[in-house]
Each structure stands twice: as C-alpha cells, then as structure tokens.
C-alpha cells in the first residue's frame, strides 16, 4: 500500500485534515475525499481552468497541485464563495446574464472572476479577457461571461 500523508489545511475558512497519497492531486482530494465537487475535472492538464481554486489567495489549477503540497495552506473553493446563504455578486450576475450553458466551466470562472474583482475592482474588458484566459468555455463564446463580470463589478462598486 502506498504511504498516506496526513495533511492539515484550511478550506473555506474551516480547519480540515485529510489523508492522501503523494500522487493525488488537490482536485482529486477535494472531489473524492472531501466531497467538494464544485471544482470540475476538465482537461486534467492545466489548460481549461475548470478546477480553479484559490490557494493562499492565488487562483491555481487544482489538477496541477499535489494534495501533499497544501500542508498549512488556505484554500477557497467555489463552495465558499456565497456568503451566509446569499450568492456572491459574481454568481448572481452569471445567473442573471445567462453566462453559462452546460455549466462545467462555471465554478472555475466564478472563482477566477472573484479573484480578479478582489484585485481589480474596476477591470477593463481587456483586463477581464486577459485574466480569465486560463478558463475555457466551449459553449458561450465568452461575451456573456465578460458582461456578467462587468455587471458584477458594477454591483460590487454600488454596495
């Protein structure tokens, strides 16, 4: 039996520990061990961004992080984005602006877009397209996603 590593981390603000093999990705552990199935496995090689989570505040492809690497780190997944049962402005605008079709890319876009707006509250369209280039959507053609992020920025600014 491969050796299991005991990893202690914080996920969506809660102390969480788990056992994993060295070869397991953070994405595998999130989905299969911790049952946080929001992050999706798209390409499993760092191209599509469907597995995006925040690792110590930075967006990463969780398929390209070994779970053993997150000892002591803080992780935020799409499950942690809504606050007190209310959708985050990014989530609400994705819904209202129909910025999704099949939905597989959506959790990754939501996490990356929230990270973008946390850093740049008033992004230009170019900022949005550039910073979300690591997230692929094969349905929408991106325009609706960009508009949803722009509308979320306006809504957050009005708060």
């Amino acid at each position: 039996m491969p050796r299991k590593h005991h990893i202690e981390t914080t996920i969506n603000g809660e102390s969480t520990d788990f056992l994993c093999e060295a070869r397991q990705s953070l994405l595998e552990v999130l989905r299969d061990t911790l049952h946080l199935t929001g992050a999706k496995e798209g390409c499993n090689n760092g191209n599509c961004g469907a597995c995006t989570v925040l690792l110590d505040g930075q967006p990463v492809d969780s398929c390209l992080v070994l779970a053993v690497e997150v000892q002591g780190a803080s992780i935020e997944t799409v499950e942690g984005i809504a606050e007190c049962g209310h959708l985050h402005a990014v989530q609400q605008c994705f819904l209202e602006d129909a910025a999704l079709q099949c939905g597989v890319c959506t959790p990754g876009f939501i996490v990356a877009a929230k990270a973008l707006l946390d850093r740049k509250p008033q992004p230009t369209e170019e900022d949005i397209r550039f910073d979300l280039a690591g997230n692929l959507c094969r349905c929408t053609g991106y325009d609706k996603i960009v508009r949803a992020v722009q509308n979320a920025a306006e809504r957050l600014a009005a708060k």
Binding site: G46, G49, T52, L55, Q58, P59, V60, D61, L64, V65, A112, A115, L116, D131, L132, A133, G134, N135
Partner: peptide, 9 residues
C-alpha cells in the same frame, strides 16, 4: 506564460 492559474505556480 500560461494564464493566471499557471502564473500562480
């Protein structure tokens, strides 16, 4: 080099 997620790592 890659997108933002790649540049984080």
């Amino acid at each position: 080099i890659g997108g933002w997620q790649i540049q984080s790592r």
